[in-house]
């Protein structure tokens, strides 16, 4: 028996990539969510890239500061304030999500539930805001094929991108609700791991992340 070869073999077997282990130090579930996020980012990336092309090829792209001026109940025009608030809400919900994950790792079920509830609340408010905003610009005359501010592709890309993002928020809310119920019923406690909460959290942060870019590229630029 060659001693060096045995040692070498032992080293290989015990290395992180030597098999029988999770080489990234995360379970396959969590890694699966990560790569799903990468994949989904490519869909959004393609939408945004297409939007970029329309933006640079269309003369007279509408000024978003003149389009998105509505704010409920205040009666005066407040350019972009409403979207800024939506962004604020989504960031807050990401924050509470992070706290929910942190609480669940401390096995604090009540706290985890509380923060999950807040996250769901934030997400729901965001969706409602989006409904309001859609309602408003549809009311102003925007459709998939035309809008009062000029280039038809403006409203078409708006509805497409925010709509696709909205669907993500909606599915995120469903996932969050299921997760909250599982936490409540002690599912993760019995399983001995709160990883499920963290995985849903990843998805939720991603939804927030996408919004940051949509907000930047569509509204602010």
């Amino acid at each position: 028996m060659n001693h060096d070869a045995v040692l070498e073999q032992k080293k290989i077997m015990e290395s992180e990539w030597g098999g029988g282990k999770a080489p990234f130090g995360v379970s396959w579930r969590k890694y699966m969510m990560w790569i799903f996020i990468v994949s989904d980012a490519f869909t959004f990336g393609a939408f945004l890239a297409a939007y970029g092309l329309f933006r640079v090829t269309s003369a007279g792209w509408p000024d978003t500061y003149e389009v998105f001026t509505a704010f409920p109940f205040i009666g005066v025009e407040a350019p972009m304030l409403f979207v800024a608030m939506m962004t604020f809400i989504l960031i807050c919900s990401s924050f509470t999500m992070a706290l929910a994950v942190s609480a669940s790792y401390k096995n604090d079920r009540t706290k985890a539930l509380k923060f999950l509830g807040l996250t769901i609340l934030g997400g729901s408010i965001f969706i409602l805001c989006q409904v309001y905003e859609w309602y408003h610009i549809i009311h102003d005359g925007a459709t998939m094929t035309s809008n009062p501010w000029g280039v038809p592709l403006f409203s078409a890309t708006f509805f497409m991108i925010t709509g696709f993002h909205g669907l993500h928020v909606l599915s995120g809310l469903i996932l969050l609700t299921i997760t909250a119920l599982k936490v409540k019923r002690g599912f993760y406690e019995r399983r001995g791991s709160y990883e499920g909460v963290e995985i849903v959290g990843l998805y939720w942060h991603f939804v927030d992340l996408v919004w940051v870019f949509v907000f930047t590229f569509f509204y602010l630029l």
Partner: peptide, 23 residues
């Protein structure tokens, strides 16, 4: 893990750059 998540994103950025350049 960090690399495996972040590096692929270069590719979609390449698409965006090419489209903007074309445009």
């Amino acid at each position: 893990l960090i690399y495996s998540i972040l590096l692929p994103l270069i590719l979609i950025v390449a698409l965006a750059v090419a489209l903007l350049y074309e445009g």
